[in-house]
């Protein structure tokens, strides 16, 4: 199987029924997508597939050949964090942080489509993702901040 993850092609030697999550974490040694429920109920495993927020824990890789998969690592790094990552750091939007990568990917999917998303749209978009520490107020602030950063960046681009 060939998978395109974070802009890089990868030859994957795994049963096509294998959920993407285990390929990301096991074969590609990527940490951000997390196992939370394996049922598509909590969103800790969320990644982007062709720009759509997707539960990697219930998506078999056989459905993904030829598609663009992006994980949190594909947005930015500790040395060069992406706007959504800078926004979460600035708002200190984590307690344990285990759900946060999934939250950021779902927010990224929304803001890529609509950088002008308002509070109601952000809440609706994040509804599939659970946080058990109670970091919700900060997560909402961080996503609003990321939206502003993206709008500013967009406005600053040469027309």
């Amino acid at each position: 199987m060939k998978l395109n993850v974070n802009g890089q092609p990868h030859d994957i030697d795994a049963d096509p029924r294998t959920p993407l999550l285990y390929v990301l974490r096991g074969d590609l040694q990527l940490n951000a997508a997390k196992f939370g429920c394996g049922l598509g109920q909590c969103g800790a495993c969320t990644v982007l597939v062709d720009g759509e927020a997707t539960f990697s824990c219930v998506t078999p890789i056989l459905a993904l050949e030829g598609k663009g998969i992006v994980t949190l690592e594909g947005l930015g790094s500790n040395d060069h964090p992406a706007p959504i990552q800078r926004a979460f750091i600035a708002e200190q939007a984590a307690q344990c942080g285990y759900c946060i990568a999934g939250m950021m990917m779902r927010a990224q999917a929304l803001l890529q489509k609509n950088p002008h998303a308002g509070d109601a749209e952000i809440r609706a978009a994040l509804e599939p993702n659970l946080c058990r520490c109670g970091t919700h107020m900060r997560i909402l602030r961080a996503v609003r901040r990321a939206a502003q950063m993206m709008q500013t960046a967009q406005a600053g681009e040469p027309q």
Binding site: L30, N31, A32, T71, L72, E73, G76, S77, N78, P81, Q85, F88, I89, Q92, A94, G97, I100, A101, M104
Partner: peptide
């Protein structure tokens, strides 16, 4: 937090 939001 930086490591947790960048996949380290």
């Amino acid at each position: 937090i930086p490591a947790k939001v960048t996949g380290v």
